[in-house]
Design a protein around this nucleic acid. Sequence first.
DNA 1: AAATAATTTAACCAGATGGTCAAATGTACA
DNA 2: TGTACATTTGACCATCTGGTTAAATTATTT
Lengths: 203, 203
Amino acid sequence: MGTIDSKTEEIIFRAARKVFTRKGFDGARMQEIADEAGINKALLHYYFRSKDKLFDRVFRDVVKMTLPRLISIMNSEMPLFDKIRTFTSTYIDILSGNPEFAGFVFHELSRNPNRLLESLKESGPNLRLLENQINEAAGSGEIEYIPVTHLVVNMMSLIALPFIAQPVIMGMFPMKPENFDAFIQERKELVPQMIINSIKRRP
Amino acid sequence: MGTIDSKTEEIIFRAARKVFTRKGFDGARMQEIADEAGINKALLHYYFRSKDKLFDRVFRDVVKMTLPRLISIMNSEMPLFDKIRTFTSTYIDILSGNPEFAGFVFHELSRNPNRLLESLKESGPNLRLLENQINEAAGSGEIEYIPVTHLVVNMMSLIALPFIAQPVIMGMFPMKPENFDAFIQERKELVPQMIINSIKRRP
DNA sequence: AAATAATTTAACCAGATGGTCAAATGTACA
DNA sequence: TGTACATTTGACCATCTGGTTAAATTATTT
């Protein structure tokens, strides 16, 4: 279940992912997906019964392309600061390759919050582990205490929002696409530095 | 131009803002707006010729409800750290009162990037001023240098994303709506502290 | 090569959706 | 009161959209 065997099925699926992630469920048209795939609209329904079913597959695929790698970093035994650095650069790399993913996931999730819950329930990040690392580092005086919630949300925010806000950013600060890419790359260093700097205890 | 005189016009407009900000342009239905306003669908077109026109008014209104206050803070002569604190708490207050605004603006902007450019062109924030403040503070050794772009994007990110990601956050960390509100309130202190901490030069 | 099954298509359908219009209702004013 | 004007509505229309179906085409099996 969930596998793609035929060649055309693969083509259709990629087309669907492209259109859905760019336009969202409501903005996407089955006809547009068919055109993008270069096939007849009826073929969409032959392979993926309905728009809902096709969308569902796409959404799961997008989650599967991002979450597992991030969760495995979170759940690793890596030291706290390394974890922050690795998480950031991995997440930024993923989104650099698929800039629409961030906006897509958050937007569709607000349309149907239950969607992610399933994915998270079956293999969520082990927040207890991260919590322990924070407590240890705070106990030893290495860092100032910060609740896990805020630390995680801070990382997500600093990483994901620039992609969602790309048009705003490129409008505010005159930027060509290459400049925006460079700007994002700078953040692979800047974001973890900033997070670490903000919690590291001052001498 | 752009004013609302009649009582029903006001009711319709509020209904439209509610529906559009929650569902987006593509997800919104004229019938739903009419129902929300408790009037006939034809009346929508009587007051606001088309869905596009109505949406445009709503979008402009939302921008006008947020941007000017933020811009005036940015353009004020307030000291850098105060500016960061005031900007954050004002922005969070605005979004707390209208949690859908953030996702709405960013999503619709990626559908039509030109929309904001107009609003920004006529009265954008004076980034040169902020830049000077950064340079001064960096020159005097008070802070570590940071490009304006990153500083501004960092603030936007830490403030706006939690609202966009609300369902994700409430799913990851078991949170009831009240808890989420409290979580957001905590950030009015935490975010500026974090930003300032991350740039303040260490002794 | 014939028969069977899988893939692909053109044509079509039903319901939804943005939009129109003529009639009805209400309001102000002479 | 009657008349001009604005407001509101129900009914209707054209188009779009997801989905179906029967036929055509291609691949597979015997």
